[in-house]
């Protein structure tokens, strides 16, 4: 997995690319979120457009990111959730935990 990040309208947009399945992926996303939260940037969008799939480790990482941001009083939204990941969020009921938007633009507008 590769990880790009940018800021738009005061919202941090993280753009992982590839597959989120454990190993080094587990730390990269979590550390990035923690760094932003520590820098008082607590409005975050994770844009999943370029993520082919994730396993339960990936879902665990998403939950960890959500908790880090929420506990700091911020907000986290998902954007461009692919069909494969959408189906995993549905069968695990995590669809009730995450706010998802069809585009990064919409997610940023909702988060700011």
């Amino acid at each position: 997995m590769k990880l790009n990040s940018r800021e738009q309208d005061g919202v941090v947009v993280l753009e992982p690319k590839g597959k989120i399945m454990g190993g080094p992926d587990a730390t990269a996303l979590k550390e990035s979120i923690r760094d932003y939260v520590n820098a008082n940037k607590k409005k975050v969008v994770i844009d999943l457009a370029e993520v082919d799939w994730m396993n339960s480790t990936g879902l665990g990482i998403m939950i960890s990111c959500l908790k880090t941001v929420k506990e700091a009083g911020g907000d986290l939204k998902l954007a461009n959730v692919t069909d494969k990941i959408k189906s995993l969020l549905t069968i695990t009921k995590l669809v009730t935990v995450f706010d998802s938007y069809d585009s990064a633009e919409e997610a940023v507008n909702a988060a700011k």
Binding site: S56, I61, I63, S64, K67, I91, T92, K93, T96, V97
Partner: peptide
């Protein structure tokens, strides 16, 4: 059960459930 309300925000424990699905 990873679908129990109390387990929804756990970071682990849903792997076997996903595999079964």
């Amino acid at each position: 059960n990873p679908l129990d309300e109390k387990n929804l925000l756990r970071e682990v424990g849903r792997g076997i459930f996903i595999v079964r699905s």
